[in-house]
Simulated assay, not measured.
Amino acid sequence: MKIRRLLMSALLPMTCLCAAAQQGEDNTPAKGDFTVAATLGYNSYTEATALPGNLTDYEAAAFATDWSKKKLTVGFEAGYFVSDKWKLSLGGGINFTHNPGYADKPGTMTPGMSGEDMVGEIPSYRAVASQYSCTYNVAAGLDRYFSSSVKNLMWYGGVRVGMAYSLNEQKYDEWTAMGKSVGESWSLRGALTIGADYYVMKGMYVGASVDPFAYTYNMTSFRPQEGLARLSADSSNFAILAAPTVKIGFRF
């Protein structure tokens, strides 16, 4: 009963908007219009984490680009109608993070100590790594719009290509550290996209989209300590009905 009420409360406003739009003016876009939208959807970009440089064995694994294992992602998308039916779009984001490092604090325990000898002894505190991280992603698309039987509702099909890059550097201030460790990861993605936009008014629209097919290639590499060669791993991901996304946008 509660589910039915929730569905009715969500569908009723949309039904009223559609009915009002059928009787109102044409709000669909035209050549020369710009759009800016906030997006919310499941997708995968890339991420890197440097390996600490005081291990005895190193191993690498490619970043998982399976979109269904990702959390919701908020993004932005800008578009330009080169004609009444064709639209170019561009989206992405960038962020930087710095974590200050702190030196280690030696304890009173000695190697090999066990049992009753450990009573009253203080363990050592490891250093906090000084870290720098940078991540960005960018995607471009081309969409062909089509009219529908519902006024101010347009559906589209198109293609998307994108790239994502992530860098993480870590350095520990302790005697066992072997210098700065670096992790890098980048992804290339191509996808077919279908979706629909409903123009609530001249300057505002809501929409949804999904990728019927998407391919992502990822390369992840690590340099565990200074002077060592890179340790790399790569992966290829094929997805069907990937990256479902909803958006709310404005037209200028």
Rank of each mutant, 00 (worst) to 15 (best):
S166Y: 03
Y102V: 08
S187K: 04
S187H: 03
V74D: 06
E226D: 13
D66F: 05
G112F: 09
I248A: 15
Y80T: 02
F63M: 06
E77R: 15
V150C: 10
T108R: 10
G91W: 00
F34K: 10
A60M: 03
A139E: 06
W175H: 09
L17W: 10
P224K: 00
A196W: 10
Y132H: 12
L17A: 09
T73G: 09
Y165L: 08
S130F: 07
T35D: 11
G158D: 00
T28R: 12
M219T: 11
P29F: 08
K2G: 09
D143S: 02
A20K: 09
R5A: 11
D104Y: 14
K70P: 05
Y205K: 01
N218W: 06
W67P: 15
H98M: 05
L55Y: 11
P111K: 12
T46H: 00
T220M: 00
G227M: 07
F252I: 11
F252L: 14
S147N: 15
L12M: 13
V74S: 10
V182W: 00
A140Q: 08
R5W: 10
R144Y: 15
K87F: 01
Y172K: 01
L228S: 12
L40V: 02
D84S: 01
F213G: 13
N27P: 09
S209D: 04
V161N: 02
T35A: 13
C134T: 14
L12T: 15
S83G: 01
P244T: 02
P212F: 11
Q170I: 00
Y125P: 03
R251M: 11
G179F: 00
Q22I: 07
S236Q: 14
M113D: 15
S83P: 00
D197E: 12
F252H: 06
T245A: 07
A37F: 00
D211A: 13
A140C: 07
Q225K: 14
M201Y: 09
Y132G: 03
G101H: 01
T176L: 11
G157Y: 12
V206K: 09
N168S: 06
Y198V: 08
T97H: 14
A233W: 03
S68T: 05
G53D: 02
A61E: 15
T46G: 03
E169V: 01
V161K: 04
G179H: 00
T65D: 02
N137M: 09
L192S: 03
E174W: 13
G162K: 01
G157C: 13
L72Q: 12
R189W: 03
T28E: 05
Y172M: 05
L11W: 06
G32P: 01
D211Y: 05
I122S: 09
F146V: 06
